[in-house]
Design a protein around this nucleic acid. Structure first.
Lengths: 150, 150
DNA sequence: CGTATGTAGTTGTAATTGCAACTACATACT
DNA sequence: AGTATGTAGTTGCAATTACAACTACATACG
């Protein structure tokens, strides 16, 4: 059964927009950069040695590679990230988070986590959160799988 | 309680991105316009007489007004929407969906609904969906309220 | 009435994102 | 080795989105 009540979907989309917007607002109010930067910094810091291949990072962040190229350009220009070559694959590039990048991420996290707790996580109890979390992960894989298949 | 496990949040964001990406991919594959157009068309069609004030539509869609202006410009250029003045408020403008706009929305919905059912709604049973739907709505209002206040 | 302040919508311009094409290298197959 | 095909990453350029400033009108209040 399930299906056929798309209202849950529309609420999902609206909640996402409102939450991101409020998080951006709070970050900006604190003089911090946009959400997307956090995402990239965490994508790196959560990888081995704070380092990932470009394509791997794009995959973790679920964004397109050509967008990542320029995002990393901007982060690198601010000294938050550094690039290097991959030794065994002449095509490849690594991005690594710098100390300065780690410090910024931490600072952003103070604002970001507060907003997520207050506005989002507080709506669920632990059990609901676990269920929800798994369902979302299934949805994401289904979407990825469908995209790869055609 | 709850809180302090932001993983659910990150899965939420990733699921949103993957799903939107896959929906866009399917729409493009069917030669149809982007997701944002659907959103605006439905925002209008779901209003009284298929009409809304610009600011009301922006609010329903949870996007910024200055972005809506140009989105409606594009829709109007394609004959999907028409604009008119508000009689009792000289500042205001209405947007209304046209027959051609309704037809396109319907066509897009065939693709869109299929993707939402298959990839998203199928992850929940009815009860979970109801709970989840309510929690998302609470989160969205909390975010909006917080934005208006501080 | 006349001025101050607020709201609706738009516009100029900068930043970001999306698409298609490109370079450089890797892998597979002859 | 030599050619064909695939992958990683980047770049040019068009489309979209974000921010700040603006026009036009409304509302409040002297």
């Amino acid at each position: 059964m399930s299906s056929s009540d798309p209202d849950t979907w529309f609420r999902f989309v609206r909640a996402h927009r409102c939450l991101i917007r409020e998080i951006e607002r709070r970050l900006a109010a604190a003089g911090l950069p946009a959400y997307a930067w956090y995402d990239a910094l965490w994508g790196l810091e959560s990888g081995p040695e704070g380092t990932r291949r470009m394509s791997e990072l794009a995959d973790v962040m679920a964004i397109e590679r050509y967008n990542l190229t320029r995002l990393v350009d901007r982060l690198e220009a601010e000294g938050l990230v550094s690039r290097s070559r991959v030794s065994d694959d002449g095509r490849g590039a690594y991005a690594a988070i710098t100390e300065s990048g780690k410090a910024l991420r931490k600072k952003m996290w103070q604002i970001y986590e507060g907003a997520v707790d207050e506005l989002f996580l507080s709506q669920f109890d632990d059990k609901q959160q676990r269920f929800f979390s798994d369902a979302l992960e299934r949805a994401a894989s289904a979407a990825r799988a469908s995209g790869r298949a055609g």
